[in-house]
Simulated scan of single mutants.
Amino acid sequence: MKGGADDTAVLPSSSLRKGGRMKPLFPRGDGWVRLASLLGFLALWQFLAWLLQSTSLPAPAVVFGRVVDETVSLALPWHLAITLARVVVSFLLAMAIGTAIGIAMGRWRQLDLLLDGWLVLGLNIPALVTIILCYVWFGLNDAAAIFAVAVNKIPTVVVTVREGARAIDRNLMQVAHAYRLPRWRTLTRVYLPQLYPYLMAAARSGLSLIWKIVLVVELLGRSNGIGFQLNMFFQFFDIAGILAYTLVFAAIVLIVEAAALRPLERRLTRWRG
Protein backbone atom coordinates (compact mmCIF):
# COMPACT_ATOMS: atom_id res chain seq x y z
CA MET A 1 0.00 0.00 0.00
CA LYS A 2 1.11 3.56 -0.69
CA GLY A 3 1.65 6.37 1.77
CA GLY A 4 3.13 4.09 4.44
CA ALA A 5 -0.16 2.42 5.25
CA ASP A 6 -0.01 -0.51 7.60
CA ASP A 7 0.25 -3.73 5.56
CA THR A 8 -1.19 -5.74 8.40
CA ALA A 9 -4.53 -4.01 8.03
CA VAL A 10 -5.63 -6.70 5.59
CA LEU A 11 -5.31 -9.36 8.28
CA PRO A 12 -8.11 -10.18 10.72
CA SER A 13 -7.67 -8.37 14.01
CA SER A 14 -8.02 -11.69 15.87
CA SER A 15 -4.89 -13.03 14.18
CA LEU A 16 -2.57 -10.30 15.54
CA ARG A 17 -0.65 -9.87 18.74
CA LYS A 18 0.53 -6.59 20.16
CA GLY A 19 3.27 -5.18 18.02
CA GLY A 20 1.78 -6.54 14.79
CA ARG A 21 3.01 -10.15 15.13
CA MET A 22 0.93 -13.11 14.04
CA LYS A 23 -1.26 -14.80 16.61
CA PRO A 24 -2.25 -18.48 16.31
CA LEU A 25 -5.75 -19.04 14.98
CA PHE A 26 -6.28 -21.50 17.87
CA PRO A 27 -5.07 -19.54 20.91
CA ARG A 28 -5.58 -22.37 23.32
CA GLY A 29 -3.11 -24.65 21.60
CA ASP A 30 -2.96 -27.36 18.99
CA GLY A 31 -4.41 -29.86 21.46
CA TRP A 32 -7.91 -28.57 20.67
CA VAL A 33 -7.39 -29.27 16.99
CA ARG A 34 -6.28 -32.83 17.70
CA LEU A 35 -9.23 -33.33 20.07
CA ALA A 36 -11.66 -32.08 17.44
CA SER A 37 -10.12 -34.45 14.92
CA LEU A 38 -10.57 -37.43 17.24
CA LEU A 39 -14.18 -36.47 17.97
CA GLY A 40 -14.77 -36.25 14.23
CA PHE A 41 -13.36 -39.75 13.84
CA LEU A 42 -15.72 -41.07 16.51
CA ALA A 43 -18.68 -39.35 14.85
CA LEU A 44 -17.79 -40.89 11.49
CA TRP A 45 -17.40 -44.31 13.11
CA GLN A 46 -20.81 -44.01 14.79
CA PHE A 47 -22.43 -42.95 11.52
CA LEU A 48 -20.95 -45.87 9.58
CA ALA A 49 -21.96 -48.35 12.29
CA TRP A 50 -25.52 -46.99 12.22
CA LEU A 51 -25.59 -47.05 8.42
CA LEU A 52 -24.23 -50.59 7.98
CA GLN A 53 -25.97 -52.20 10.96
CA SER A 54 -23.44 -55.05 10.82
CA THR A 55 -21.55 -57.06 13.44
CA SER A 56 -18.45 -56.43 11.35
CA LEU A 57 -18.44 -52.83 12.57
CA PRO A 58 -19.79 -52.47 16.11
CA ALA A 59 -20.66 -49.00 17.38
CA PRO A 60 -18.19 -47.07 19.56
CA ALA A 61 -20.37 -47.61 22.65
CA VAL A 62 -20.16 -51.39 22.18
CA VAL A 63 -16.38 -51.30 21.82
CA PHE A 64 -15.90 -48.99 24.81
CA GLY A 65 -18.14 -51.26 26.86
CA ARG A 66 -15.89 -54.14 25.89
CA VAL A 67 -12.86 -52.14 27.01
CA VAL A 68 -14.48 -51.69 30.43
CA ASP A 69 -15.30 -55.41 30.70
CA GLU A 70 -11.77 -56.47 29.73
CA THR A 71 -10.29 -53.96 32.15
CA VAL A 72 -12.47 -55.07 35.07
CA SER A 73 -11.50 -58.69 34.43
CA LEU A 74 -7.81 -57.56 34.44
CA ALA A 75 -7.22 -59.35 31.12
CA LEU A 76 -6.53 -56.12 29.25
CA PRO A 77 -4.13 -54.58 31.82
CA TRP A 78 -2.23 -57.89 32.08
CA HIS A 79 -1.66 -58.36 28.36
CA LEU A 80 -1.02 -54.65 27.82
CA ALA A 81 1.66 -54.58 30.52
CA ILE A 82 3.43 -57.57 28.96
CA THR A 83 3.40 -55.99 25.51
CA LEU A 84 4.63 -52.63 26.82
CA ALA A 85 7.49 -54.36 28.64
CA ARG A 86 8.59 -56.02 25.40
CA VAL A 87 8.31 -52.71 23.54
CA VAL A 88 10.42 -50.83 26.09
CA VAL A 89 13.20 -53.45 26.25
CA SER A 90 13.33 -53.84 22.46
CA PHE A 91 13.32 -50.07 21.95
CA LEU A 92 16.14 -49.38 24.42
CA LEU A 93 18.23 -52.22 23.02
CA ALA A 94 17.76 -51.09 19.42
CA MET A 95 18.46 -47.43 20.21
CA ALA A 96 21.61 -48.17 22.22
CA ILE A 97 23.15 -50.52 19.65
CA GLY A 98 21.96 -48.54 16.62
CA THR A 99 23.21 -45.22 18.01
CA ALA A 100 26.66 -46.60 18.78
CA ILE A 101 27.04 -48.17 15.33
CA GLY A 102 25.60 -45.11 13.57
CA ILE A 103 28.01 -42.70 15.27
CA ALA A 104 30.94 -44.98 14.51
CA MET A 105 29.97 -45.32 10.83
CA GLY A 106 29.50 -41.57 10.49
CA ARG A 107 32.87 -40.86 12.08
CA TRP A 108 35.10 -43.45 10.39
CA ARG A 109 34.77 -43.82 6.63
CA GLN A 110 36.49 -47.19 6.45
CA LEU A 111 34.08 -48.67 8.96
CA ASP A 112 31.19 -47.15 7.00
CA LEU A 113 32.41 -48.85 3.82
CA LEU A 114 32.87 -52.14 5.66
CA LEU A 115 29.38 -52.21 7.23
CA ASP A 116 27.36 -50.49 4.50
CA GLY A 117 26.54 -53.77 2.73
CA TRP A 118 25.42 -55.34 6.00
CA LEU A 119 23.26 -52.30 6.67
CA VAL A 120 21.53 -52.50 3.27
CA LEU A 121 20.91 -56.21 3.85
CA GLY A 122 19.41 -55.55 7.28
CA LEU A 123 17.12 -52.85 5.90
CA ASN A 124 15.70 -55.14 3.24
CA ILE A 125 15.17 -58.41 5.12
CA PRO A 126 11.44 -58.68 5.90
CA ALA A 127 10.56 -58.52 9.59
CA LEU A 128 8.54 -61.72 9.28
CA VAL A 129 11.62 -63.64 8.12
CA THR A 130 13.68 -62.36 11.04
CA ILE A 131 10.97 -63.28 13.54
CA ILE A 132 10.59 -66.82 12.19
CA LEU A 133 14.35 -67.42 12.14
CA CYS A 134 14.77 -66.16 15.70
CA TYR A 135 12.02 -68.46 16.93
CA VAL A 136 13.55 -71.43 15.07
CA TRP A 137 17.07 -70.71 16.29
CA PHE A 138 16.40 -69.60 19.88
CA GLY A 139 13.02 -71.11 20.70
CA LEU A 140 9.60 -69.69 21.47
CA ASN A 141 10.63 -67.44 24.35
CA ASP A 142 10.78 -63.77 25.25
CA ALA A 143 14.51 -63.48 24.56
CA ALA A 144 13.98 -64.57 20.95
CA ALA A 145 10.98 -62.25 20.60
CA ILE A 146 12.84 -59.19 21.91
CA PHE A 147 15.94 -60.00 19.87
CA ALA A 148 13.86 -60.29 16.70
CA VAL A 149 12.22 -56.91 17.29
CA ALA A 150 15.53 -55.18 18.06
CA VAL A 151 17.26 -56.67 15.01
CA ASN A 152 14.51 -55.30 12.78
CA LYS A 153 14.85 -51.81 14.24
CA ILE A 154 18.63 -51.42 14.57
CA PRO A 155 19.34 -50.77 10.83
CA THR A 156 16.89 -47.85 10.67
CA VAL A 157 18.46 -46.28 13.77
CA VAL A 158 21.92 -46.72 12.26
CA VAL A 159 20.92 -44.99 9.02
CA THR A 160 19.43 -41.96 10.78
CA VAL A 161 22.19 -41.52 13.35
CA ARG A 162 24.91 -42.02 10.73
CA GLU A 163 23.54 -39.07 8.78
CA GLY A 164 23.55 -37.01 11.97
CA ALA A 165 27.16 -37.93 12.70
CA ARG A 166 28.12 -36.91 9.17
CA ALA A 167 26.37 -33.54 9.61
CA ILE A 168 28.29 -32.58 12.75
CA ASP A 169 29.83 -29.10 12.39
CA ARG A 170 33.58 -29.72 12.46
CA ASN A 171 34.26 -26.03 13.11
CA LEU A 172 32.43 -26.22 16.43
CA MET A 173 34.43 -29.29 17.36
CA GLN A 174 37.66 -27.47 16.52
CA VAL A 175 36.62 -24.51 18.66
CA ALA A 176 35.98 -26.85 21.59
CA HIS A 177 39.40 -28.39 21.05
CA ALA A 178 41.04 -24.96 20.82
CA TYR A 179 39.51 -23.96 24.16
CA ARG A 180 40.67 -27.31 25.59
CA LEU A 181 37.24 -28.33 26.79
CA PRO A 182 37.20 -31.67 28.59
CA ARG A 183 36.07 -34.60 26.44
CA TRP A 184 32.90 -35.15 28.46
CA ARG A 185 31.92 -31.47 28.22
CA THR A 186 32.64 -31.45 24.49
CA LEU A 187 30.46 -34.52 24.08
CA THR A 188 27.51 -33.21 26.10
CA ARG A 189 27.63 -29.51 25.15
CA VAL A 190 28.93 -29.53 21.56
CA TYR A 191 28.59 -32.95 19.92
CA LEU A 192 25.34 -34.45 21.25
CA PRO A 193 23.20 -31.28 20.90
CA GLN A 194 23.89 -31.39 17.14
CA LEU A 195 22.91 -35.05 17.11
CA TYR A 196 19.69 -34.71 19.13
CA PRO A 197 17.36 -34.01 16.16
CA TYR A 198 18.56 -37.20 14.47
CA LEU A 199 18.27 -39.22 17.67
CA MET A 200 14.71 -38.01 18.18
CA ALA A 201 13.83 -38.80 14.57
CA ALA A 202 15.23 -42.31 15.04
CA ALA A 203 13.37 -42.71 18.33
CA ARG A 204 9.98 -41.57 17.01
CA SER A 205 10.13 -43.58 13.79
CA GLY A 206 11.60 -46.54 15.64
CA LEU A 207 8.95 -46.59 18.31
CA SER A 208 6.18 -46.57 15.70
CA LEU A 209 7.86 -49.52 13.99
CA ILE A 210 8.51 -51.48 17.17
CA TRP A 211 4.85 -51.22 18.27
CA LYS A 212 3.84 -53.07 15.10
CA ILE A 213 6.59 -55.69 15.09
CA VAL A 214 5.97 -56.62 18.73
CA LEU A 215 2.36 -57.44 17.90
CA VAL A 216 3.47 -59.70 15.04
CA VAL A 217 6.00 -61.41 17.31
CA GLU A 218 3.31 -62.08 19.91
CA LEU A 219 0.84 -63.29 17.31
CA LEU A 220 3.31 -65.82 15.89
CA GLY A 221 4.97 -67.26 18.95
CA ARG A 222 3.90 -65.99 22.36
CA SER A 223 1.12 -67.05 24.69
CA ASN A 224 0.39 -63.58 26.08
CA GLY A 225 0.38 -59.94 25.05
CA ILE A 226 -1.85 -57.80 22.85
CA GLY A 227 -0.80 -59.62 19.69
CA PHE A 228 -1.73 -62.99 21.18
CA GLN A 229 -5.14 -61.67 22.24
CA LEU A 230 -5.80 -60.22 18.79
CA ASN A 231 -5.07 -63.63 17.29
CA MET A 232 -7.52 -65.26 19.69
CA PHE A 233 -10.23 -62.73 18.84
CA PHE A 234 -9.59 -63.26 15.13
CA GLN A 235 -10.15 -67.00 15.47
CA PHE A 236 -13.53 -66.35 17.07
CA PHE A 237 -14.41 -63.45 14.71
CA ASP A 238 -14.71 -61.20 17.76
CA ILE A 239 -14.55 -57.77 16.09
CA ALA A 240 -15.48 -55.88 19.26
CA GLY A 241 -12.57 -57.50 21.10
CA ILE A 242 -10.15 -56.70 18.29
CA LEU A 243 -11.23 -53.05 18.19
CA ALA A 244 -11.20 -52.74 21.99
CA TYR A 245 -7.59 -53.91 22.33
CA THR A 246 -6.53 -51.93 19.27
CA LEU A 247 -8.03 -48.68 20.57
CA VAL A 248 -6.37 -49.04 23.97
CA PHE A 249 -3.04 -49.82 22.35
CA ALA A 250 -3.39 -46.83 20.01
CA ALA A 251 -4.32 -44.59 22.95
CA ILE A 252 -1.11 -45.59 24.74
CA VAL A 253 0.88 -44.71 21.62
CA LEU A 254 -0.76 -41.26 21.44
CA ILE A 255 -0.12 -40.62 25.14
CA VAL A 256 3.56 -41.57 24.83
CA GLU A 257 3.92 -39.36 21.77
CA ALA A 258 2.19 -36.34 23.33
CA ALA A 259 3.42 -36.63 26.93
CA ALA A 260 6.98 -37.87 26.40
CA LEU A 261 8.44 -37.66 22.91
CA ARG A 262 7.22 -34.22 21.84
CA PRO A 263 8.17 -32.41 25.09
CA LEU A 264 11.54 -34.19 25.11
CA GLU A 265 12.21 -33.19 21.50
CA ARG A 266 11.32 -29.55 22.22
CA ARG A 267 13.59 -29.50 25.25
CA LEU A 268 16.57 -31.10 23.51
CA THR A 269 16.35 -28.91 20.40
CA ARG A 270 15.37 -25.55 21.93
CA TRP A 271 18.98 -24.35 21.60
CA ARG A 272 18.41 -24.11 17.85
CA GLY A 273 16.08 -21.18 18.48
Rank of each mutant, 00 (worst) to 15 (best):
A49R: 13
P182Q: 15
A258V: 03
P12G: 02
W211D: 01
V157T: 05
S73R: 15
P263R: 12
R185T: 05
V161S: 03
V216R: 06
K212G: 07
A150K: 10
L172A: 09
T156H: 15
V129I: 02
P126H: 05
R185P: 00
P27S: 02
L57E: 01
L52E: 08
L115P: 14
L121Y: 12
I146V: 14
L25D: 14
W184G: 11
A36I: 09
F138P: 08
W137C: 13
R262Y: 11
L209S: 04
H177L: 11
A148L: 03
R170F: 06
S90M: 08
A96I: 09
N124E: 03
L25I: 09
G102T: 00
A258D: 07
A145R: 03
P12A: 04
L16T: 04
L74C: 04
P58R: 13
V63E: 00
A127D: 02
R86L: 10
P24A: 07
A9K: 03
W137L: 11
P155T: 00
I252W: 13
L192Y: 15
E70D: 07
L93F: 15
W45L: 10
F249A: 12
L38K: 03
T8N: 12
Q110R: 05
L219C: 03
T186Q: 14
I97F: 07
F47Q: 10
A259M: 06
L48V: 07
W118D: 08
L207R: 00
L243Y: 00
G3Q: 12
Y135H: 09
Q53S: 11
F236P: 01
G164Y: 02
C134E: 07
I131P: 00
I146L: 15
A201Q: 08
E163D: 14
P58L: 11
L48T: 12
F64M: 04
S13Q: 10
T188A: 04
M1E: 14
L128C: 08
M105I: 03
I103S: 00
L76G: 00
V68S: 08
T160R: 01
G40A: 10
N152V: 15
I103N: 02
N224Q: 10
T186C: 15
L51M: 06
V63A: 04
Q110G: 03
F64I: 04
A94S: 14
T246M: 02
